[in-house]
Simulated scan of single mutants.
Amino acid sequence: MSHSNASPKYRLAVSAGLDYDHAKHQSVQVNGETLRLEDDRASFDLNVRIQDYTGYPDSSPKTSPYFEHPLHKNDQYSICFTFTPKQDINGNDLVFGNDFDKPLRHRLPPGFNAALRVVKWTIDSSLDGDAYADKPYLYSPALASWNQFRIGEKGQAQSSLMEKDLVVEEGADGQGLEERSKLDIPSTAAERQKFFQKEKNRESFVFEIGRTYMADFGNQYLSFSETAIRLPGIHIPVSGMVDEDNHELRYVLKDNKTGEVYLVVSYNLIKQDSENAAQEESK
């Protein structure tokens, strides 16, 4: 149910899966239990956190201890996961970002291009894409885009790789320390992101079969409670971009060379006078 007196026009529901097919996705309990996803290519433990959350399912806590951590007191959301590939993947091939099945250009608000320039200047200079294409996309090299990145060990037990309140911090565990040292990967998150903005550094990195990696992505600029993008000097209401064709924001981890998708986290705005709202209530 809503946490405000006025009924919202939309409520958020988050799902996740290993490809784009919504029929195969699982519902995510935001700020709650870890979701395990696995196939013959990789395994993931996923936590999604959203500050001041009022969406589905109703069992989702409104917030998470994550937002009390010194690294995240200003953040509005987080996609945090472990990633254990079952084949080697070159670091230059893996991208992370947003894509869409249908055009957005007729729904993009004034100031959107300015907002993108601000993002590239202040947040992620390696961001690449075309928001005005028939199938819009905005991707960054995964190694350069994740806010926190941690290299783990090979052969870690798969039972509890990600506790629901775990905060991933930049660094490494066990043999992962040697991997970071071997490639001269900087120890701080900001310097690591800058390091992997160079293609030659990404090409020298391999996501190894059987090794567990941890990543966290989020920021203070996308507010799901207000359904708005908030950048310095720019406020873009996301609800104005929602219609029958466009009501989903998805984050995708994929191989940009082959097009193979590994992980999809889908944020769906559910209209409250629709049959979809009743369906979400029943989940």
Rank of each mutant, 00 (worst) to 15 (best):
D93Q: 12
N113M: 07
W146V: 05
G111F: 06
Q156F: 00
A142F: 10
W146C: 03
V95D: 10
H106Y: 09
G129K: 01
I123R: 12
Q148L: 01
R105G: 13
A115W: 14
H106P: 01
L166W: 02
A131Q: 09
V95G: 10
P141R: 11
V167R: 02
R105S: 15
G97L: 03
I123P: 04
Y137E: 05
D128E: 15
F149M: 07
P110W: 03
F100V: 07
P109V: 08
A131H: 08
H106E: 10
L104V: 11
S159F: 01
D134A: 10
F112R: 06
L116K: 07
L127Y: 11
D101K: 14
A157Y: 03
K135P: 06
L127S: 09
F96P: 01
V118M: 15
K154V: 06
A131F: 11
Q156I: 01
D128Q: 11
L104E: 13
F96R: 00
K164D: 05
M162C: 14
D165W: 04
L166D: 10
V168E: 11
G97I: 07
A114W: 07
V95E: 14
D130Q: 13
R105M: 14
K120L: 09
L161C: 09
D101S: 15
D124T: 03
P103Y: 05
Q158G: 06
Y137F: 15
G155D: 13
A142H: 14
L161I: 02
I151W: 09
E163V: 00
D165G: 04
L127V: 11
G129H: 00
L108F: 11
N92V: 09
D101E: 14
A142L: 13
E169Q: 14
P109E: 04
K120W: 09
D93K: 12
A133M: 01
P110G: 05
D134G: 02
P103I: 04
R150N: 06
L116D: 10
L108T: 11
S145E: 11
G129V: 01
D99E: 12
A115F: 14
D99I: 05
E153L: 04
R107M: 11
L116G: 01
L143M: 12
G155L: 08
S159G: 04
Q158A: 14
K164H: 08
F100C: 11
N147R: 02
V118W: 11
Y132M: 06
V167M: 03
P141F: 05
W146K: 00
D134M: 10
N92G: 15
D165P: 02
Q158S: 13
E153F: 04
Y137R: 11
R117C: 08
Q158T: 09
Q148V: 00
D134S: 15
I151T: 10
L143E: 07
S145M: 12
R117D: 14
K102M: 04
S159H: 02
R105C: 11
G111D: 06
L138G: 03
Q158Y: 01
